[in-house]
């Protein structure tokens, strides 16, 4: 829409190219009109030939049909020409589109170049340096600020950290068994073992186990 105002009103927006296309299209229209006319004529001639046949004028009918045939060939010729014209028109129009595409690319290129000109490498480096400096400064400020805070808090923080660590350490120990060791059972087992020693093949094993338990108990008591 911008082009509407930027261009002076008197300057025609119809280019020579358009005129060439227009001329082709006009030719096409003329051919089409010609075809319409011929088609009508053909229909009429056919009717006329039939009438002539009905009234017995064979020669006249033949003549008319011959004329019709001739016109039919003309019609197909016109069709071919029409095809040529349409092809030419399409080619021209497509060429125009291509031109516009190239123009568009060209303008895009120019715009890109302009942007690149604006972006000087040194300047960018400078900007990047400044940014880096800024970041560093920010970090410094952060350090100072957090340092100021930790003056009094640091101890608390450390204390809390220790408390947390201690908690962690206790919780990681295995749990102390809550129930008492089954002492009476152990004694029974000893008696049993002596009773069943001969019968049970596993007895010696059990016995040994019981013995070791007893040893443990002795140790604990000691």
């Amino acid at each position: 829409m911008g082009s509407l105002f930027s261009k002076s009103k008197k300057q025609s927006r119809v280019t020579e190219h358009d005129k060439a296309v227009l001329r082709l299209k006009q030719q096409r229209d003329k051919l089409k009109q010609y075809q319409k006319r011929i088609e009508l004529q053909l229909e009429k001639d056919r009717e006329l030939a039939r009438k002539c046949l009905q009234t017995g004028r064979r020669d006249r009918a033949k003549l008319l049909l011959r004329k019709k045939k001739f016109q039919e060939t003309q019609l197909s010729n016109a069709d071919k020409q029409l095809e040529n014209l349409e092809k030419m028109t399409a080619d021209l129009e497509f060429a125009q589109v291509e031109l516009q595409v190239i123009e568009g690319l060209k303008q895009g290129n120019v715009a890109l170049k302009k942007v690149h000109d604006l972006m000087d490498i040194n300047e960018i480096e400078k900007i990047m340096d400044e940014t880096r400096e800024g970041v560093e400064k920010q970090q410094e400020i952060d350090a100072i600020l957090s340092g100021a805070l930790s003056e009094e808090d640091e101890e608390n923080v450390l204390a809390e950290l220790d408390a947390l660590a201690a908690e962690e350490a206790t919780s990681s120990l295995p749990e102390v068994p809550a129930e008492d060791l089954p002492e009476p059972e152990a004694n029974e087992m000893v008696e049993d073992a002596t009773l069943t020693a001969e019968i049970d093949a596993d007895a010696p094993k059990k016995k040994r186990k019981n013995l070791s338990e007893q040893d443990k108990k002795v140790l604990v008591e000691a």
Binding site: L4, R13, V14, D18, K19, L22, Q26, D29
Partner: peptide, 18 residues
């Protein structure tokens, strides 16, 4: 309104729309 342009070529007209 600037939405088209009419041109005369020979005996007939052409219109280009914008």
């Amino acid at each position: 309104k600037g939405k088209c342009e009419v041109v005369q070529l020979d005996d007939s007209f052409g219109i280009k729309f914008f």
